[in-house]
């Protein structure tokens, strides 16, 4: 492998891995607290995408549109908790899973009904289509933006989780929810905070994901949800670090097959990826990073 190809490979893994890591983190932060998968997570990406599309007609600068799209994703995340989780979270797991599926379907159908089943182009600044040349390798600037944005966001998130009382409270609630409440940490506040963070990550993922594909469709949330789910399973459902590691590892597997498979086998890339994932899980059934064994559902 030449130096140029190696640089391209590393940057491809890092940019795709950054997106996957963020997707996984948004899913696992809810799982950590509620011990439930939020199946409406992908729709947060969709909502942010359509917000960006609808804001196209406004005179606002693109950064303001992106910020509003992220805010709408955060608000939808919090709404998911109030509509789909809170009324039934003390009931059975099945009830919560069904309401989470229902909310996801409701949002998708709303997009189909009120906007369009067809793909809609979102506004993107020129920088997302430009490239730079590093050591004779052409690198899309959007990949560098993705890496920089996600690393910055992960650093802030990591700092907040380690150095702020609310961050510590989130970590405590993820490991011992009942005990966290018994030291005075309010359950509702901490759950809403987790949904808000999940919405923030989904919003940022939406902007960066749309920067790659350029348009939004009602089913756009399925891939991020699937990727997030696989990455968290590989990395470990109970660990925030595991989600990040799982995201980057899944990207490494994906990109390696992209580079290594011949053209006629490339169509079966997902089959190879999932075989690899199964192999990892055979040896590490709890994922690469175990996290907390004991966790109560709320």
């Amino acid at each position: 492998m030449s130096t140029g190809t190696l640089i391209q490979f590393v940057l491809d893994v890092l940019s795709l891995g950054s997106l996957y890591a963020l997707m996984a983190l948004g899913l696992v932060i809810i799982y950590g607290i509620l011990k439930l998968v939020n199946f409406a997570y992908g729709e947060l990406v969709m909502v942010a995408g359509y917000t960006l599309y609808l804001l196209n007609a406004t005179p606002f600068p693109w950064l303001a549109m992106a910020a509003v799209a992220i805010l709408v994703s955060i608000a939808t995340g919090i709404m998911t908790e109030f509509i789909a989780f809170k009324p039934v979270r003390a009931k059975s797991v099945t009830a919560v899973l069904i309401t989470s599926f229902a909310f996801s379907t409701l949002l998708q159908n709303a997009a189909l009904l009120f906007i369009s089943p067809r793909a809609r182009n979102v506004p993107l600044p020129d920088i997302f289509t430009r490239s730079v040349e590093i050591l004779d390798v052409v690198i899309p600037i959007r990949n560098l933006i993705t890496i920089a944005c996600v690393l910055l966001l992960l650093s802030i998130f990591s700092f907040a989780m380690k150095r702020t009382v609310l961050g510590l409270a989130l970590r405590a609630a993820a490991s011992q929810f009942r005990m966290a409440r018994m030291v005075g940490i309010p359950a509702n506040m901490i759950i809403s905070l987790a949904f808000a963070i999940s919405g923030l990550f989904a919003g940022v993922v939406a902007i960066l994901w749309l920067g790659r594909i350029g348009s939004v469709v009602p089913g756009i949330g399925l891939e991020p949800l699937l990727v997030a789910f696989i990455a968290t399973v590989i990395g470990g459902m109970r660990s925030l670090l595991g989600a990040v590691v799982g995201g980057y590892l899944l990207a490494l597997i994906d990109v390696s097959f992209n580079y290594g498979l011949s053209q006629n086998l490339l169509a079966f890339r997902d089959a190879f990826t999932f075989t690899f994932v199964i192999l990892i899980l055979l040896f590490r059934p709890s994922g690469l990073i175990k996290g907390h064994e004991a966790g109560q559902r709320t």
């Binding site: 009382v165 510590l168 409270a169 970590r171 405590a172 490991s175 011992q176 009942r178 005990m179 966290a180 030291v183 005075g184 940490i185 907390h292």
Partner: peptide, 17 residues
């Protein structure tokens, strides 16, 4: 039920939440 991932001081900080 100590918050096992957190340090002793962090556990105390949360005690005073």
């Amino acid at each position: 039920e100590v918050f096992s991932d957190l340090t002793v001081r962090e556990n105390l900080i949360l005690g005073g939440f």
